[in-house]
């Protein structure tokens, strides 16, 4: 019997600065055997921690060919704060991957709409990478990304390449722009980008990740243009202690976010997303 709670040593291979309080870390297990067998899907998450501090559920944003993966961490809690102090070559501990990930089979041949808010973009980055690499397997790609300020946006260094993706549209919006900073895109909620949206409800899938309130209103807007709940997928955040459906903390109605999610089809989770 495997001890699911045991976390294994991993090394920080690379750190990329994203914003004043956010970095992207490329990580790999120290044990080569373990690293070789490591396989993850976009949308899954890892339990990453440091002994003495604790563990946090962090989503996988990028999977490299050598099997190492990246996670984007915003410095907001005990674990993330400690990770934030690490340097390249430092060690931490991790276990996983956990969770379901995005519905990859479902996406094939369809138009994909990605709506992301703030630190909600990293879990969706794997999908953008996937479409980029296998362009002809998918239809139109549309990315709508909103953040509090231009500085808070992550993966800014990829925006140029994403704009070059064939048969795609990329729209950005922010809540506020500080005086003197340069901003050429929209100001407003992500839903303010919807009037110009090209994706239609036929043969398409919408993938949402961001604050729950953003996802709720984005889903509501999508419904008005004919999207069905089963065409919309959301990735949820909850408190997680075990990552595999035992500690109970991440329950939302009859589901564990860690085990049954974090990606859910909107029709299975809708009754619970608001009241529970």
């Amino acid at each position: 019997m495997k001890n699911e709670y045991m976390a294994y040593p991993a090394v920080v291979k690379k750190i990329l600065k994203e914003s004043s309080n956010t970095n992207t870390y490329t990580l790999a297990f120290v044990n080569e055997e373990k690293q070789k067998n490591f396989k993850a899907l976009p949308g899954q998450f890892m339990m990453i921690g440091i002994f003495g501090i604790g563990e946090a559920a962090l989503s996988i944003c990028k999977i490299d060919e050598d099997g190492s993966f990246s996670t984007t961490v915003r410095n907001v809690g005990n674990v993330t704060n400690t990770i934030y102090q690490l340097k390249e070559g430092d060690k931490l501990n991790m276990r996983g991957p956990y969770g379901t990930g995005w519905p990859l089979e479902e996406l094939k041949g369809k138009d994909i709409l990605i709506v992301a808010g703030g630190i909600g973009l990293p879990p969706l980055r794997g999908i953008i990478d996937l479409v980029q690499k296998n362009r002809k397997n998918y239809g139109h790609l549309e990315i709508i990304y909103g953040a509090r300020t231009p500085e808070d946006m992550v993966f800014k260094y990829e925006f140029g390449a994403w704009r070059q993706i064939k048969n795609s549209r990329f729209d950005l919006t922010v809540d506020t722009v500080s005086l003197g900073s340069k901003w050429e895109c929209k100001i407003g909620l992500v839903t303010s980008c919807f009037p110009q949206m090209k994706t239609r409800n036929k043969n398409s899938i919408a993938l949402l990740c961001g604050p729950e309130i953003m996802m709720r209103f984005a889903a509501k807007c999508l419904e008005t243009i004919g999207f069905k709940d089963n065409q919309i997928y959301v990735s949820l955040e909850r408190r997680m202690k075990c990552g595999f459906g035992k500690c109970g903390h991440c329950q939302i109605g009859p589901k564990y976010v860690c085990k049954d999610g974090p990606v859910f089809s909107y029709d299975e989770i809708r009754p619970y997303i608001h009241p529970l």
Binding site: Y5, F51, G52, K246, C247
Partner: peptide
């Protein structure tokens, strides 16, 4: 069945328990 998981370290900060 719900439980919380946490770490405690001793005063040396070098060893502890999950």
């Amino acid at each position: 069945y719900c439980y919380d998981v946490y770490d405690t370290v001793d005063i040396t900060l070098q060893k502890g328990i999950r």
